[in-house]
Design a protein around this nucleic acid. Structure first.
Lengths: 212, 212
DNA sequence: TTGACATGTCACTGGTTGGTGACTTATGTT
DNA sequence: AACATAAGTCACCAACCAGTGACATGTCAA
């Protein structure tokens, strides 16, 4: 009765998984649920993907979930070369938040990544880690990195903070008095990023002697 | 045959839930699993707690999950009064990470909080938010907050970053090249906190004019 | 001691899960 | 036209799930 088109069916399955993930979260995931949502017999999931695990892998690896460096920066890679370390850092961090806000499915995958360690989570982490390192390489190549500042650690901390605040916005409205779901709150967060980057990149003297 | 002690049984159930949560994560949660783990008939969960939902609420609200302010600061409240804004901020943030690292069940609750919004997640968020505001009040009362710096937003960002890195350590080993499960990596993160706080609290001048 | 009730055990339901084998039917090749 | 194979449907399995009713038994008050 139905048209027989493998690619189309595969697509339906992946779309169904994505929709289910975005709307219900991964708590609702399962072969039956995905098949039902995709309007497809679940046996096809086994035949085409080899089971739920591999389907998830195909989905998470293949999709357009992870914004590229230029997407995060909001500019072509060629333009980035001329920027100052400060501008580049701020652009990338702000862009990270902005892009992540636009991608509910990516958020869902990130939430899912926090749960349980397995081969897939490791694979996702590896891919993401590589991009992070590329970005740090880009930043580190600039010559005005202040001495005594562990830029990677600072960037990791701020980057992680932005990620968490975006993920947290899904289930909470405020974080230490900062609104997570208002434009005002988001601007406060963006300004905090600027404040931190500006301060760290400028005030680097007497960092060492002060610590001990 | 068995001793009949309601309180003991309730405790067994809550302990079972906690152990299950810490070891398997909330993916494995359920009336049957908890009852099995606690060595108790599941019907008692319904009788004593009114179902899984309310059991979870009792668990999450009642337990010693959220470190107090003095726990985070690693000092009595009375001692905190004399500290500088810089020292207090650093102590609280570092303490937050340290305490969170020691509490796998709290981590699990936090992961769970990210998933789905409901009455319980709202209640947890409210309680946590209140403590966060208390801390900010404590910090804000000090008179050396630099003008033009949104301390709450900066604190929220760093606090969120530490939280995310701790949660992430469960399923990944690195974050932008920073080790999450090594003492060296944790020290880098702690130093980054210091770097940021130091820089933000000291370099506040010409913040405004520079932005535009 | 008797009776009432709280405490805990057991068995069962209806529904869902992941997974598999058998089946029908369309498609494309010879 | 005959055929092999791929595409999709269907029925079924054992295991698990949440939830409930019936029952046995310990505890305590009258």
């Amino acid at each position: 009765m139905t048209i027989r088109d493998v690619e189309k069916t595969k697509e339906k399955i992946l779309d169904g998984l994505g929709a289910l993930l975005a709307e219900e979260g991964f708590g609702a995931l399962g072969v039956n649920a995905v098949a039902r949502r995709a309007g497809v017999d679940k046996v096809l999931i086994y035949r085409y993907f080899g089971g739920m695990q591999k389907l998830l892998r195909t989905y998470a690896i293949g999709g357009d979930f992870w914004p590229s460096i230029s997407q995060q920066a909001g500019a072509a890679l060629s333009e980035l070369a001329g920027m100052s370390l400060r501008d580049l850092s701020v652009r990338l961090l702000k862009g990270h938040m902005r892009e992540l806000l636009k991608r509910p499915r990516t958020q869902e995958i990130m939430r899912w990544e926090l749960l349980k360690r397995n081969e897939l989570s490791d694979e996702l982490a590896r891919a993401r880690e590589q991009q992070g390192l590329e970005i740090m390489q880009l930043l580190g190549s600039l010559d005005d990195v202040p001495p005594g500042v562990d830029l990677a650690a600072v960037a990791a901390l701020v980057h992680a903070g932005l990620s968490y605040l975006v993920l947290r916005a899904h289930t909470a409205d405020d974080y230490i008095g900062v609104g997570l779901n208002t434009t005002k709150g988001r601007r406060r967060i963006e300004n905090a990023v600027e404040t931190i980057i500006d301060a760290v990149l400028r005030c680097h003297s007497d960092e060492k002697e002060n610590r001990k």
